[in-house]
Design a protein around this nucleic acid. Structure first.
Length: 870
RNA sequence: GGGCGUAUAGCUCAGUUGGUUAGAGCACCUGCCUUACAAGCAGGGGGUCCCAAGUUCGAAUCUUGGUACGCCCACCA
């Protein structure tokens, strides 16, 4: 390439397409399994939930990790940087249901003819399909989403090793996940039990504590009259009158004077005439409502907690679908003083949803209701992805034992380095506040099945106490398809035969082994040893309580290890009102459009400006600045390189040994400092500081150093003075390109490939080249910073004078008179010839040495413009 | 109610261990096509560093107490 062949303008779109292809073709980002662990850097990439589209929050946090990965790669490390897709779980099911307008009914047989069709705006009623048909639809949907995601990631320049791709529903992940479950069974960290569990009635599944959130909801206090067995009247205030049939007792605070005489006696419920005991309960607040309340199975978690302390019956009236189920008063737990009336009243409620039953109940209560229901704002638990309040329903679930290990798990968390440090507090507080074991079973379909069956007795009833676990050689398996080794398929569902565990695992149960999925735990011991524990887990702060916590938990349970040495917590992208940008608010912008408008490098620049853990306000003006930076990098690089072609048009490098001129040496000192600081910041994951320092030094390079020395470099090419400038320019440019490379990979690669990539001993790609290092200087120490500051002052003063006199910058200066201390004058004389050349000064400046008087500003420049342009 | 974080120019943010007159970019105003870059260059205006008290020769910075905002958790009849 000759100087004239350098492209005129930078086209980011062409560059992105071109380098994307070449990086892939040359496997620049490929992990090398033969390199030693100490020279490898392992990243436990978050597998994004495949649920339709990626937003700017993804771009933000994934770019930040990529910046670190690119830096590490340039320090010579072998990078293991996988990408996975979290495609199983409820978000996918919900999306598939609405996308294809179908619903899973596990009772139906497989229909090989059924093909899911996109039902956009089409029919409203959901077609019921078999489990297998439903799973097929899920796979079709996730596969097409994953292709879209992949396209965006590649465009953004994320340097994943695409050979290390996985999906949490694929065979390999199912195997690791099921292995994980069986290992925890072996180690006695897992149990199943039938107990009241938080239950989403819409999705009809259990949910874990970590997936629950509080929401404000309108409700009403209903004041209901109860009678005691001695004829006294009691008023109980409740927001859930529909649970009256499930009332098991009435409680008040042990110290409450008003109710002392009632403890030990019984109350009779209105409408159903059930006789329930009046008991003491610490959780009853004398100041709330009427001070006395009913306990139902189950109105809230307090009811569950209290129920567990008693031997009172379980009256389950809410069914799994959220409707009131059929029960019979007068029998077993549903004792009644008047079963006939009770049953006739309850008949009105059967089949209604809780909300409808509440209304009906008001009618049934009639006179037993003291007053009109009073409105109140209550806080109710919801599944984070659900629209109806959670119920507590007694169901059989699998749990991982967390509570007995809380202290150990806090200690494990301490062994990980948190960036920023204070994020550890969130982890600690969450673990300390936990009050339930981790429920990992979900009554859903698109997930990893439990590798478990149950024996059926002669009546066909399952024996839950002695589950049959799959052998590890069978994994992965679906117990609904595969039979246990000790049984034949014909015995499925038969008396004295077996049945499959119908549930699937919580998505987190699988994603919490993401490091082991990548390392091929229990599949390839050598690989596992090289990749586990990982070096870095990048993730967002709202999932510290789930993903980070569960991953730490599982690594400890499996191998008594921490899963990674560092965890980097990214902030959020927020609106100007400081609220998280979210899709539901309709204010997200699609990354694809922004990539087209501003370029990948510009978006990356925006992400790179934000420090870890800090939220960033979405501000398009930052993209513009990023775009401008890429243009400047391109133009300045081109200009510097242009100086380096000889008369024959041949590109010529200049060794650092040629750097002799004082101002050049001073500039190199500045570069050395920049490089060492930038490196130090990257090592602490403070990439944002590295970027801002590099950026400001680079503009300084363009506006000061380059302006001051370009004439010397150009006119004195054959002399030592010119070569000193050329060598300085070359070293500076090469360093800047590398320092910028993790942030803006496309433009730096473009520039690197003008000439640097072709030189002997240099890497063909900037991203596989080595991080810059400082140049050893054997010159005597001079006051580098002061020399630069003084020359900058002279240069800017000359430009300012011309500017304010409305003269072009090429306009000549007749004379210049500089006053300063002896030291200042000595320094400025070192750069005299550059000043003459760069300011179009007609003769050498004159100087005056002043006595040093610290209280005065004594460095001053006077100059006189030429009358004419010549 | 508990924990964490943030508060600096109109906007977005830097500000190291306390140390001259508190910085940058964007936006705004003035001037200038210079051997790359007008997507550029030079210059300018713009601040009660959230409030109060304290420590100190000296506080944006340290201490205490507030206020506002954000996040996580808890409360949930």
């Amino acid at each position: 390439m000759a100087a004239s062949d350098l492209p005129k303008k930078y086209n980011n779109a062409t560059s992105e397409e071109n380098w994307g292809k070449k990086w892939a073709l040359h496997a620049v980002y490929q992990y090398n399994p033969n390199v030693d662990r100490s020279q490898t850097y392992v990243i436990d990439t978050p597998p994004p939930t495949v649920s339709g589209s990626l937003h700017m929050g993804h771009v933000f946090s994934y770019t930040q990790t990529d910046i670190v990965a690119r830096y590490m790669r340039m320090t010579g490390k072998n990078i293991f940087y996988p990408i996975g897709w979290d495609d199983n779980g409820l978000p996918t099911e919900r999306r598939v249901q609405s996308m294809f307008c179908i619903r899973c009914n596990p009772q139906l047989p497989y229909d090989p003819e059924f093909k899911p069709k996109n039902a956009k705006g089409g029919k409203k009623t959901q077609k019921e399909v078999s489990r297998q048909n439903f799973l097929e639809a899920c796979k079709i949907q996730t596969a097409s989403d994953e292709i879209k995601y992949e396209g965006l990631w590649k465009h953004l320049g994320l340097s994943f090793d695409w050979n290390q791709q996985y999906a949490t529903i694929d065979e390999h992940c199912r195997k690791v996940s099921q292995n994980s479950f069986l290992d925890l069974v072996d180690k006695n960290h897992v149990y199943s039990s039938k107990a009241p569990t938080m239950w989403d009635t819409t999705f009809q599944t259990a949910v874990a504590q970590a997936e629950v959130e509080d929401r404000e909801k309108h409700g009403h206090y209903h004041d209901i009259k109860f009678k005691t067995d001695c004829g006294e009247e009691l008023v109980i205030s409740t927001t859930r009158p529909e649970l009256l049939a499930a009332c098991i007792c009435v409680v008040a605070h042990p110290d409450d004077e008003r109710f002392q005489h009632l403890f030990g006696k019984f109350a009779i419920t209105p409408v159903f005439h059930s006789k329930v005991p009046i008991l003491k309960a610490e959780h009853a607040d004398p100041d709330k409502g009427t001070g006395i309340l009913m306990v139902c199975t189950f109105g809230d978690s307090a009811d569950v907690d209290f129920w567990k302390t008693t031997s009172l019956p379980l009256k389950q009236i809410i069914g799994r679908g959220g409707k009131l189920v059929k029960i019979e008063f007068g029998k077993e737990e549903f004792a009644s003083e008047n079963p006939k009336v009770a049953n006739s009243n309850y008949q009105e409620l059967v089949g209604l949803y809780a909300k409808q039953a509440r209304k009906k109940m008001v009618e049934l209560l009639g006179d037993s209701l003291c007053a009109e229901p009073k409105p109140t704002e209550q806080i109710v638990k919801f599944y984070e992805k659900g629209d109806e309040p959670l119920e507590f329903i007694s169901t059989r679930q699998w749990f991982i034992k967390i509570l007995e290990n809380k202290n150990t798990l806090v200690e494990q968390g301490k062994k990980v380095k948190w960036h920023p440090e204070h994020m550890f507090k969130r982890y600690e507080q969450w673990v300390e506040g936990l009050n339930q074991d981790w429920c990992i079973s979900r009554q859903r379909f698109f997930g990893v099945p439990f590798p478990v069956w149950y024996k059926l007795d002669a009546q066909g009833e399952p024996d839950y106490d002695n589950p049959i676990f799959a052998s590890k050689e069978q994994l992965p398996l679906d117990p609904q398809v595969t039979n246990p080794v000790s049984y034949s398929e014909e015995q499925r569902g038969q008396p004295n035969g077996f049945m499959a565990d119908p549930d699937v695992m919580d998505t987190w149960a699988t994603s919490s082994v993401s490091p082991q999925i990548s390392s091929h735990w229990k599949g390839n011991d050598g690989r596992h040893a090289k990749l586990f524990p990982a070096d870095l887990r990048p993730q967002a702060h709202e999932i510290i309580r789930t993903w980070a916590f569960y991953t730490i938990t599982k690594s400890w349970m499996h191998e008594d290890k921490i899963p990674w040495h560092n965890i980097a917590i990214s902030g959020w992208v927020v609106n100007p009102d400081k609220k998280k940008m979210s899709k539901s608010k309709g204010d997200t912008v699609t990354p694809d459009d922004l990539l087209k408008t501003y370029s990948a490098d510009a978006l990356r620049y925006w992400a790179g400006k934000a420090r870890l853990g800090n939220d960033t306000v979405y501000d398009e003006s930052v993209f513009k600045v990023g775009l401008r930076l890429t243009t400047k990098i391109f133009n300045a690089s081109k200009f510097v390189l242009m100086q380096m072609y000889d008369k024959e048009g041949k590109f010529k490098t200049n060794s650092p040994g040629l750097i002799t001129e004082p101002v050049d040496v001073a500039w190199i000192r500045k570069m050395n400092l920049l490089i060492s600081q930038s490196t130090a910041h990257f090592e602490k994951y403070d990439y944002a500081i590295a970027l801002s320092q590099t950026e400001s030094s680079f503009w300084d390079f363009c506006d000061f150093y380059l302006e001051l020395t370009k004439t010397r470099a150009y006119k004195q090419k054959e002399q030592a003075s010119g070569q000193s400038a050329l060598a300085t320019l070359e070293h500076s440019l090469r360093s800047f390109i590398k320092l910028f490379a993790p942030f803006v990979p496309y433009v730096t690669e473009e520039v690197w490939n003008f000439e640097f990539s072709k030189l002997d001993g240099e890497s063909p790609f900037v991203h596989s080249s080595l991080w810059p290092c400082a140049i050893e200087l054997n010159k005597n120490a001079i006051e580098s910073k002061q020399l630069i500051d003084l020359s900058k002052e002279v240069l800017n003063k000359a430009r300012g004078l011309k500017s304010s006199n409305q003269k072009s910058l090429r306009w000549p200066i007749n004379s210049m008179f500089i006053k300063g201390t002896a030291k200042d004058i000595d320094l400025i004389k070192l750069v005299e010839s550059d000043i003459i050349l760069s300011t179009s000064l007609k003769q050498a400046p004159t100087y005056q040495v002043l006595e040093q008087k610290p209280e005065e500003s004594f460095f001053s420049i006077e100059m006189e413009l030429s009358e004419t342009k010549e």
